[in-house]
Design a protein around this nucleic acid. Sequence first.
DNA 1: CCCTCTACATGTAAATCACACATGTTCGGA
DNA 2: TCCGAACATGTGTGATTTACATGTAGAGGG
Lengths: 136, 136
Amino acid sequence: MRGHRFRGARARRRVGPGEWAVRARVERFGEPALLLLLSERPAHGYDLLEQLPELTGERRIDMGNLYRVLRALEEDGIVTSAWRDDAPGPSKRIYELTDEGRRLLGGWADALRANQGLVSSFLDRYEKGGDHVPRT
Amino acid sequence: MRGHRFRGARARRRVGPGEWAVRARVERFGEPALLLLLSERPAHGYDLLEQLPELTGERRIDMGNLYRVLRALEEDGIVTSAWRDDAPGPSKRIYELTDEGRRLLGGWADALRANQGLVSSFLDRYEKGGDHVPRT
DNA sequence: CCCTCTACATGTAAATCACACATGTTCGGA
DNA sequence: TCCGAACATGTGTGATTTACATGTAGAGGG
């Protein structure tokens, strides 16, 4: 019977009585991850699919969304694509980063550094607080 | 004339030809920020509204969402609230962190530390890449 | 009485995300 | 030769979160 399990993009979910599993992720982190991979070398969707988990920390990447993101990036001039039939296997759409894409990746790096600072402050303030997690 | 400006939760937006403004934020970062403030001392919504920007780096906090989050937290037993009429001015709903809330804050801290590691790896890999942002 | 500030709250559209499902190709083994 | 697994590219859809607009009501000053 479908539809009876965990659904949606919840960042916090109950895993027991008074127990919560929390996930802290940067919004749209898939985009800079994609850009970084493409800055290293052109690749096709399925290829990226296999390289992404190491960067994002996710176990599995959603293919559907990956292809949608790639198309959106192309619409915005961040990447370009071309079909490749010469390689063995099904034909692939190879994506490549544009100069604009490289600038965007630089922007992401700046923004991520800024966020690292913010979260560091948060954690420092938390740790200074003392009297923390009570026993379950 | 309403409805003609930038709307929505976009993390990236065009600010010029080939120029993008990027924001890197942790998903639902408002929640741990709220929990940290409440772990320091009980407070009412409007009070939190004024303390949050320092923690989150946002200029202004959306009141509507703040109160929605607070109610959701109360539903889940993370905070409790009580009305206060004795203080001058409009009566306030004072929020206080529960033990479960303290555990959740601990969970957020762990998750945020994990994410810091992930983003650090990303930035290291980016910086190792050399040949970066081309001139505009 | 009227206006502003404080305080709490709802309505709604856009963006993102998780999950399910559709479609075709290539290749190795039974 | 047929079958299934892995490769490769997508579409459909509802849940969640966010940004912004708007609504309600009491307190306090002039």
